[in-house]
Amino acid sequence: MRLRLEGVGHCFADAQWLFRGVTADFETGTTTAVTGPSGSGKSTLLALMAGSLYAAEGTVARQGIERTQWVFQNPFGVARRAAIDHVVLPIMAVGGSRDQATDQAMVLMEQFGLASVAARPFAQLSGGEAQRLMLARAVASQPHLLLVDEPTAQLDHQAAVTVAEALSSLSLKGTIVAVATHDPLTRDACQSIVDLTRYATED
């Protein structure tokens, strides 16, 4: 499974180029940070990788990627359902009993430091806990491509630290992980970096 960007550039309508000539390889088991200042096209690059946008130039080669999961900068969940229910659902979706799914979900919750809040309704989670829960839910659905968009943008420093730690411990054998961020803490939690400031153009 592999994702390769080759000479990728993009612009919207008559606007100027966001970036041009991006070339990068994304491998499974590696978490890659897509960095750059606000407006540099980080989220756009993730959308090109997901296939929900087509590049204005260059090629996006996706090999063996069938399931893509997004984690957005604002965590969202079902307010009155327990935190663990969010992780149990994707596991149950592929078959098996709720008890089995709950056991697997608890293992994941522990990995993301959420075991103590498993029974708490989503609405009562802190920002950091909610964002980590979104990561846990995304991982539970075993995606081939996991795209995380500014996971710490709306969080305070302490909460951002917990999310960055969760990202740094994220080592998924069968998943390509890309994280759009302008937060140095999150960037440092990743194993490789695609810096869009290198690909910015001035028309």
Binding site: R67, Q69, W70, F76, V78, L89, P90, M92, A93, V94, R137, A140, S141
Partner: peptide
């Protein structure tokens, strides 16, 4: 709709 789309995105079949 956001909850439902997320449920579908989690792999839950539309029939379910």
């Amino acid at each position: 709709r956001l909850e439902c789309a997320a449920t579908l995105d989690s792999g839950v079949p539309r029939l379910a």
